[in-house]
Design a protein around this nucleic acid. Sequence first.
DNA 1: AATTTGTATTGAGCTTGATCAAGTGTTTTT
DNA 2: AAAAACACTTGATCAAGCTCAATACAAATT
Lengths: 252, 252
Amino acid sequence: MTNRNVVSFENIKVACKNCSLATLCLPMGLSPEDMERLDSIVKRGRPFHRGDHLFREGDNLHSLRVITSGSVKTFTPSEDGGEQVLSFHLPGELIGLDAIQNECHTCSAKALETTAVCEIPFHNLEELSSSMPSLQHQMYRLLSREIGQDSEMLTLLGKKSAEERLATFLLSFSERFKKRGFSATDFFLSMSRHEIGNYLGLAVETVSRLFTRFQEEGLLHVERKHVQLLDLPRLATIVHGNENGRSHQRHV
Amino acid sequence: MTNRNVVSFENIKVACKNCSLATLCLPMGLSPEDMERLDSIVKRGRPFHRGDHLFREGDNLHSLRVITSGSVKTFTPSEDGGEQVLSFHLPGELIGLDAIQNECHTCSAKALETTAVCEIPFHNLEELSSSMPSLQHQMYRLLSREIGQDSEMLTLLGKKSAEERLATFLLSFSERFKKRGFSATDFFLSMSRHEIGNYLGLAVETVSRLFTRFQEEGLLHVERKHVQLLDLPRLATIVHGNENGRSHQRHV
DNA sequence: AATTTGTATTGAGCTTGATCAAGTGTTTTT
DNA sequence: AAAAACACTTGATCAAGCTCAATACAAATT
């Protein structure tokens, strides 16, 4: 007996036009027809598990990737086993842009939890974008945005104190979760304290101490990876240098 | 009496195809015909003097700019009069890429000395690139390269010690001067110690002390802005963490 | 349930590089 | 030429945040 009411996974049409992330992602600003053309080159593969590499430094660039669920860190490994975490990525975000220059990845990417991605073969995308000005425009915008974000990070690492760094980090995630329809004040961080510290240019212990201190000061409640932000306004003042009572501000 | 042998400045045809910087700049990889098309949208204006702004944070994006002579710093000013230096630019380098995202500059740019630039109106460039795949490709590459460079800078600020930072800085300039046909070991730095420190996330005093120490150790000779690198190999080992004798290496 | 392994927290002490301060040298202005 | 403004250097002191070490807690394995 065949049951015609059972929803078969094969029948779920995964497509850009149905995707809730479309406004955050490459199709942003594309017409429905253009979106279909983009859709035709996108591949959806098996999900990655925690710790899996999406790609490694040195791999040839094959595809750009958009996270559709889960989260990813990108990082540059160093000879001695260490690494520099470059960024954490949430659904809707495009990764692999660094690899366009030499058709070769300059960083590695690892899934922080079970993660699904759309793959967009770069050569197809490039070809498509040269016959689709709106897609070319969107690519320029996304590449430019990445540059702007990196600049903010340079300021964070060059000028900000440890507490400013962590507050900035937390508010960044708050805003990004909010944009994706999740709570801005109650979320799980998928990365370890070690990875947070690495990303922010701080030792693990410093990150741990700051979480404790922020909690003591009533700014947030934290238990392991679960974070609840209790005082967004005060966190925001910390981000902007805590004008009021900073005895020692870093060199300006 | 008219002297037909006198070279009039009006008769010097400034054009991409004659430009010694073409291989470093946008025309890289373009056919002679495509180069002429690009050339037709490029504007060459009056030179900027030391301290002049090429553009300011918040200005609308009008043109991307390529330095043709002189040098430029880009930086994000902060309310309190401070700034974060984002990069120093030499001839052949393209600036303003951060502004594509929102058609608005996210940083300011100032001439460090007398500086000439080519201006490339972005809307013309974008239009041209959608009918010229090689130009589109070159734009993607340049944007991607910028992202890669920023990542290296994140590692520098996140992980490296003061001496590693300064050595990296010096070798970077060494290589860039070399690529432009100048000496890799004898050059003038157009920025102040303060600007170097700001860029590297260090206090002026630290930069000054490091120059003194590097000189004492025979790595270089420095007098004011004039730098002579005396031991490139040893500087290179410092860049890569000085494997040998580092008592305390920063968290990895 | 017990063991192992990995992750996070907390404390004590130390180091790097910042800050403060004074002085020297250079460039610009008068 | 003198004065003023600015850039750089050098020294003394201090603190933010790192390292080391021990412990606590959680998750995975037996």
